[in-house]
Design a protein around this nucleic acid. Structure first.
Length: 406
DNA sequence: ACACATATCT
DNA sequence: GAGATATGTG
C-alpha cells in the first residue's frame, strides 16, 4: 500500500461527492490508492450537508492534492480522539494522544495509530466476546445466550446494511423515529381500530401501515404512552403528572403489576378492581383536568390496552373514544376540554378534525388511509436551496450518514 | 422462536 | 424527555 499509515486508513470511508464524473473517478483512484474506502455518490449537496451535520469529520474543498488525501486520516483521528475524550472525560489521556500526533509531522506513529484503530473496532471485539461467552456456557444460560445472539444477528439483518460490512460494525446509530402528532394520531387510531385486548405492537404496526415503522418502535411508543397514562405527547408536555398520587414509586408501581406475555381481559379487570390491594391503588388523573368523563366511580375513564396497569382508568363503555378525546382536546398546550362533555358521540372524524385544527398537521393527512410517510418524515429536512455552495466535496466519516441520531 | 412488558441506555 | 435497545418472561 502506498501509505505508511495504511493501518489507519483501511477502515476509513470517504464519501466522494462530485458532479464531475471524470474528476470523481480520479479522486476515487487516488483515495483507494491510499487505502481509503470510497463511497461515491452522485452530486448531492443535500446529502453532503446532511453528512456534516450528522457527524462527518471533514469536508475538503477541491481540488484535492495528493498530500491532503494522503493525510485525511489524521484529521479523522484527531476528531475521533476528541470525541472519545468527551465521553471519557479524561483530559489527560486526550492531551497525550493529541501530543503524540504531531500535526506538523505528517507520518504518525504507527503503533499508536493501530491502537486507536482498535478503538474504532471496539464493537467488533465486544461482539467476539459475546461469541466466546456463548461457547463457554453450556448451562441454563445457553438458551438465553442463543437468543441474544439471534437477536443480534436479526438486528444486523434488519438494518439492511449488508452491503458494507465494515461500516456495519462501526456504525451503530439508528434512525430515530419522530413521533409527530400525526404519526401519534395514526397510532391512536390504530388502537381504536384494533380494540380492547388486541392492541399488540405487531398488530398496531400492521394497522398503521407506515413504511419503515417497526414493531419495536411501536412497542417503545406504546410503553411510553402507557407509562404516562395514555396522555398524548402534547398533553404530557403541558400537564405534568401529579407526583403525589401514590405512596409507591414508579418502579415499584410498575413491578407490582408486571404481567408478561398476555394482555388482560376487560371483564376480568373490571371484576377484579375492587379486590385490589389498597396499597396498589392507582391515582386518578381526571382531577388534573386532563380528562373528563362521568365522575361516578363506575365511569372512570379507561385507557386501553393495559387495564391491569392502569386500573384507575376503568370505564365501561366507549373507552377509546374517551382516550382519543383527551388527546383531541389537549393538543397545543391548551386544555379545552370541559367537564360534562360526552365523548361517547365523538367519532374518529371528529377526532381527526380536532387534532388537525389545533396542531401542525399536514392538511392532506388522513388517518389510516395508507398514506405513506416518506423518508423525509423520519429524516432531517435540510431545506437547502438548489445551488447552495459548499466548501468542498469530500467528507470523511465513520458514521452512517443516512441515520439520524436522537 | 416469537412477541410481549418492562428496565435501562443514549 | 423521547426513542432505542436490552432483558426477562409466557
Amino acid at each position: 500500500m502506498a501509505s505508511a499509515c495504511y493501518a489507519m486508513t483501511e477502515g476509513l470511508h470517504v464519501m466522494l461527492v462530485d458532479h464531475d464524473e471524470e474528476n470523481a473517478a480520479e479522486m476515487v483512484d487516488l483515495l483507494e490508492f491510499y487505502g481509503y474506502k470510497v463511497v461515491s455518490d452522485e452530486y448531492n449537496e443535500l446529502l453532503a450537508k446532511k453528512a456534516l451535520k450528522e457527524g462527518a469529520y471533514l469536508f475538503v474543498k477541491k481540488p484535492l492534492n495528493e498530500e491532503i488525501v494522503k493525510h485525511l486520516w489524521q484529521f479523522m483521528l484527531t476528531k475521533k480522539i476528541q470525541k472519545n475524550e468527551v465521553r471519557k472525560e479524561s483530559k489527560d489521556e486526550y492531551q497525550m494522544n493529541v501530543d503524540d500526533i504531531d500535526k506538523d509531522n505528517i507520518v504518525g506513529d504507527n503503533e499508536k495509530l493501530s491502537g486507536e484503530k482498535n478503538n474504532v473496532s471496539d464493537i467488533e471485539e465486544q461482539s467476539d466476546n459475546i461469541h466466546e461467552a456463548e461457547n463457554n456456557i453450556v448451562s441454563n444460560g445457553e438458551c438465553k445466550l442463543r437468543r441474544k445472539s439471534r437477536r443480534k444477528n436479526s438486528k444486523e439483518t434488519n438494518e439492511g446494511e449488508s452491503e458494507n460490512t465494515t461500516i456495519n460494525k462501526v456504525v451503530r446509530q439508528k434512525n430515530c423515529t419522530k413521533w409527530t402528532a400525526d404519526l401519534h394520531a395514526k397510532f391512536m387510531k390504530s388502537l381504536e381500530l384494533l380494540g380492547e385486548g388486541r392492541c399488540y405492537p405487531k398488530q398496531i404496526v400492521e394497522v398503521m401501515n407506515v413504511p419503515g415503522l417497526t414493531r419495536m418502535q411501536v412497542a417503545s411508543h406504546l410503553q411510553k404512552c402507557r407509562s404516562d397514562n395514555w396522555r398524548s405527547p402534547e398533553e404530557r408536555k403541558y400537564n405534568r403528572r401529579p407526583s403525589s398520587n401514590t405512596s409507591l414509586g414508579d418502579s415499584q408501581q410498575k413491578s407490582s403489576f408486571r404481567k408478561f406475555g398476555t394482555m388482560p381481559h376487560f371483564q376480568k379487570n373490571i371484576s377484579n378492581q375492587g379486590q385490589r390491594n389498597p396499597e396498589l391503588t392507582f391515582p386518578t388523573l381526571h382531577t388534573n383536568s386532563t380528562f373528563v368523563s362521568g365522575e361516578s366511580s363506575t365511569q372512570e375513564p379507561l385507557y386501553p390496552p393495559q387495564f391491569h396497569v392502569q386500573p384507575h382508568h376503568l370505564n365501561i363503555g366507549n373507552s377509546f373514544n374517551n382516550s382519543f378525546s383527551s388527546i383531541s382536546y389537549n393538543v397545543g398546550g391548551v386544555i379545552q376540554q370541559q367537564r360534562g362533555v360526552s365523548f361517547e358521540t365523538l367519532g374518529s372524524q371528529q377526532l381527526q378534525g380536532s387534532i388537525i385544527g389545533s396542531t401542525n398537521y399536514r392538511s392532506d393527512l388522513t388517518l389510516n388511509n395508507g398514506d405513506r410517510h416518506t423518508q423525509n418524515d423520519y429524516n432531517l429536512n435540510l431545506n437547502v436551496p438548489h445551488g447552495t455552495t459548499y466548501p468542498g466535496n469530500i467528507m470523511l466519516s465513520d458514521i452512517d450518514i443516512e441515520s439520524n441520531k436522537c
